[in-house]
Amino acid sequence: MKKILIVATIFFNINLLFAQSSIPSVDVKDINGNIFNTSQISNDGKPIIIDFWSTSCKPCIKELIAIDENYEDWKEETGVKVYAVSIDNTRSVNRVAPLVNGKGWEFEILLDVNSDFKRAMNVVNIPHRFLLDGNGKVVWQHTSYAEGDEEELYELVKKLAAGESLEEKH
């Protein structure tokens, strides 16, 4: 019983400390080379997806293609906004704009050339996506991409847009 109490109180404390997760403030660049601070990531109280990718990461590009195919519908139905953060370094970052435009993507593109934002968000491998609620708090994250993962992501976006909690019922 005592142990349970201890564990329970520790968890209680940790939860408090972990409860709010806003986006760290890091300088990256937008696709036109302007400095953009990540604290400016916002979407008028609607959900936000932050997806880390690079031009040489095949699954990342597959994921972005899959999101792109549905993006117009998603935006219309939930107002969600996608920030695709390229971690291409200085050696390949110039391929980002031609690739994004060549594929006709309409995401907000950010360039994190020295992986500062990636480190601040504790991303290990890409693709890695974060889902933010209307208050800009991280409520969900996921690493790697498998076919159809975008459907799971969109189910969560719809919940957020409807003001529901993502907490799973046990």
Partner: peptide, 15 residues
């Protein structure tokens, strides 16, 4: 030196 030209559906890159 890098130069790019891009529009929807077309991206060109030279360096």
């Amino acid at each position: 030196v890098n130069a790019t030209y891009s529009q929807k559906g077309l991206g060109i890159y030279a360096s």
